[in-house]
Design a protein around this nucleic acid. Structure first.
Lengths: 195, 195
DNA sequence: ACAACGAGACGGCCCGTCTCGTCTTGGCAT
DNA sequence: ATGCCAAGACGAGACGGGCCGTCTCGTTGT
């Protein structure tokens, strides 16, 4: 039943043209207005060539992002946990506040809510690596006595990233570049009364 | 330029039929498979009647939810901040873990990323009231000395709700009903070393 | 040679608008 | 109050349009 195309005969030229066309559209066009037909036209490629190698437009976008942003990740480790967390969240927020890109970013996440394959792809290639890095950094902090070791690193990751994404999701409050400072400070010191 | 229909002549029968049909579809059908044409057919209503009163299918859904869940909200206040936050987050998680409803819930949030009017509607009628309640409860806690008063309640709300939604969003880890306990405990006590 | 390629035709689904003819409603005259 | 009437909402569904995903075509490249 496998109808797999022959990977070894794949056209590198077409692949790059599709990536380039998608990147261009991503920077200039809203997610909804990006269609596979437009990508194909802009890349000078047949639609079938796209459908042969990708299951959806979002998968192409994830592919493009994975190639672009994978290298420039790397969680900072200056020895100062609070500063490092702040730096990492700020970096993430920088993407989200980008006018077109930030919205398209959220739109892909949105689409992943209805497409399980996309969700798996997006998690595995974009988020999981960063979150794994974050957890590694947190464990280092625990080992260095900068963080209690009776708290679960998964919980901390949820709080940190969730705190950042929550405002992007619901837009009750405009995004604010001082937000990471406040989030990290509250989380590290705790909100309970001073002991 | 206003092409507003006459609200006073609106058919209550049609409104209820549309609400009922939407509620039925929401419980049984994935968000993508819910179409305005299906709602109209199921309700025994002309498409135009829907388009006359709602801008999108998601708006109908928000309308239905607002009517159903508005009454049963009310933030708990037992005097114990930690228990109250835990209870509130658990309540929210209960909706998200619901198999069909939870997915449709996230799908509407997803759609709101591409539709500004929907985002405003969803925020105003579903989220903003709950978050406002949460902030009120937090301010009470501050006044009662159960919470530091040098932390911003907005930041705390972001951390709490973000922490819950984050796992639903990315599904890196399965949803877990013990999550609220861990989130609240970590946030109240802080993750920094004991002083 | 064979399979991927560019190009584009094709049927299908749903969109949002538009016409019908019918039914309901609120305002007005009696 | 009661009956009449015009306005407009109603159910039904036709319509053009956009994009989907599949399917031919020759053509190209390996």
């Amino acid at each position: 039943m496998s109808r797999q195309p022959d990977e070894s005969r794949r056209s590198e030229r077409a692949r790059q043209a599709i990536h380039a066309a998608t990147a261009e559209l991503l920077a200039s066009t809203s997610y909804d207005a990006i269609t596979i037909e437009k990508i194909a036209a802009q890349a000078g490629v047949g639609k079938q060539t796209i459908y042969r190698w990708w299951p959806s437009k979002a998968a192409i976008i994830v592919d493009v992002w994975a190639e672009v942003i994978a290298p420039r990740a790397a969680f900072p480790d200056t020895g100062d946990l609070e500063a490092d967390l702040r730096a990492q969240l700020t970096r993430m927020l920088d993407v989200l506040v980008e006018p077109v890109l930030g919205l398209n970013y959220m739109a892909v996440i949105a689409d992943s809510q209805r497409d399980e394959r996309l969700a798996a792809d997006l998690s595995a290639r974009i988020f999981a690596p960063r979150i794994a890095d974050t957890k590694d950094r947190l464990r280092l902090a625990q080992a260095a006595g900068q963080m209690r070791d009776d708290v679960d690193v998964d919980t901390v990751a949820d709080l940190l990233y969730g705190g950042i994404f929550f405002r992007s999701l619901f837009r009750l409050v405009p995004l604010d570049r001082t937000q990471p400072d406040a989030l990290v400070a509250a989380l590290i010191r705790g909100i309970g009364p001073l002991r």
